[in-house]
Simulated scan of single mutants.
Amino acid sequence: MRSVVYPGTFDPVTNGHTDLIARAAKLCDRVVVAVAQDTGKNTTFTAEERVALVREVCGDIDNVEVVAFSGLLVEFARRADVHVIMRGLRAVSDFEYEFQLAGMNRRMAPDIETLFLTPAEQYAYISSSLVTQIARLGGDVSPFVAAAVHTALRERFG
């Protein structure tokens, strides 16, 4: 497979995200990690900070590019010359929402496919929102994120 785009907020980037990125990098010649700017959520980190953290965490993977994007994902994928969107599925509960997204993206861009990957078992329960909540409440998130992300969360929440 030539290229794939892996979109998300990555707020913060977790070990589950990095597992999927590393696995996609083995399958594809090029992995574009697309950090969403217009998330509709109150994010812990700015888009620029999230891009920097993902770049730091994935810096040793040669065929990974990390960029911020805004607007429709399918339009970004076309601009990036990517025809496959990769999404992660942690649990059955993710499937319905992801299935809807894939269907809508296919309707808007029939030339772009969606590929689903599941994380390794030890990462299946990790979510960015849970990690953020634990960090905000002073808990140790080091088992769930890379050292750089752990440091950034400690600095953010004290």
Rank of each mutant, 00 (worst) to 15 (best):
I112V: 14
V33Y: 06
A22C: 05
L53P: 00
R55V: 07
D81E: 15
A120P: 10
Q122R: 15
D11I: 00
V92D: 04
R79P: 03
G40C: 13
V149L: 07
Y125G: 03
T39G: 04
D38T: 09
D62C: 07
D111R: 14
F69Y: 15
V33E: 12
R50D: 07
F99E: 09
A68T: 08
V33A: 03
D19K: 11
V92N: 02
S93P: 06
S142M: 07
S128K: 08
V5M: 05
S129G: 09
F99V: 02
A47G: 12
E49K: 02
T14K: 00
V4S: 03
V5R: 05
V141T: 12
F157P: 10
Q37N: 13
A47T: 08
Y97S: 09
I126T: 05
R107H: 11
A135C: 06
R55W: 11
V33P: 14
R87W: 05
F10V: 00
R90F: 10
D38M: 04
D19E: 06
A25R: 01
E98K: 08
A77W: 12
M108N: 11
V54F: 08
A120H: 10
A80H: 01
M86L: 15
T151L: 14
R30E: 10
V35M: 14
S3Q: 00
T18V: 15
D19S: 03
R136C: 03
E113I: 05
R107F: 13
T39Y: 13
N105G: 09
V64M: 03
A152I: 15
T118W: 08
G16I: 08
F99A: 10
A47W: 04
H83G: 12
E75R: 12
A25V: 02
F76M: 01
G138L: 10
A22M: 15
G59W: 10
V84Y: 08
G71V: 01
E98F: 07
V131P: 09
L101Q: 15
E75T: 10
T18K: 02
G16D: 04
T9V: 15
V131W: 10
E75W: 05
R136H: 08
D62P: 07
G158W: 02
T118H: 14
E75K: 09
D38E: 13
S93E: 14
A102R: 09
F144E: 01
F99T: 07
Q133T: 14
T9K: 12
D111M: 13
G71K: 01
R87H: 04
Q133F: 07
S93Q: 13
M86W: 07
V33N: 12
S93V: 09
T151W: 02
P7S: 01
A152F: 07
R2E: 12
G158A: 00
F69E: 03
T114Q: 11
V5Y: 11
R79K: 14
S127H: 10
